[in-house]
Amino acid sequence: MASYSTNEFKGGLKVMLDGDPCSILENEFVKPGKGQAFNRVKLRNLKTGRVWERTFRSGESLEAADVMDREMEYLYNDGEFYHFMEPDTFEQHQASTDAVGDAAKWLKEQDVCTVTLYNGAPLAVTPPNHVVLEITDTDPGLRGDTAQGGTKPATLSTGAVVKVPLFLEIGDAIKVDTRTGEYLGRAKED
């Protein structure tokens, strides 16, 4: 595998650190006028999601991580694994609960997600930024109360719970931002 020197570090580069694949978030070159040069680097550990800060001597290098992001269609969950398919090759991958993590509550069959492969196996799953899901449980709707701006919790078909306006009812389809968990609006009926 290739390796990268600190002067090649930039946001998004995937490298190995302490045996784990990481994505570089920030790379700051630090050099006192009359002293040694260092690089202060922020990296996200792609296995744990945790952010690490690490200082390197300028010129040090790290091995590249065999990590790539692929767009894949979510197929189904068999109780143990989540199954995804590459749309052009129809190749299927199974992702563990650990790999899917919090994304699980946004996964709807046939939605296209970003699956991060590490050494060819799913390491993480990023749901689409916006998903349309059906409300499966919420308190009864209060028609005529649309101007109040109040909210209530609603459980969606995937199990996620989001705050929605009071007038929404079971069976309504809504659009949600998966990055913030915020209600964006009612989904248009096709």
């Binding site: 790379n27 700051e28 070159f29 630090v30 050099k31 040069a37």
Partner: peptide, 8 residues
Amino acid sequence: EGEAGGRH
């Protein structure tokens, strides 16, 4: 040589 970044 080699000095590039937010402050260099």
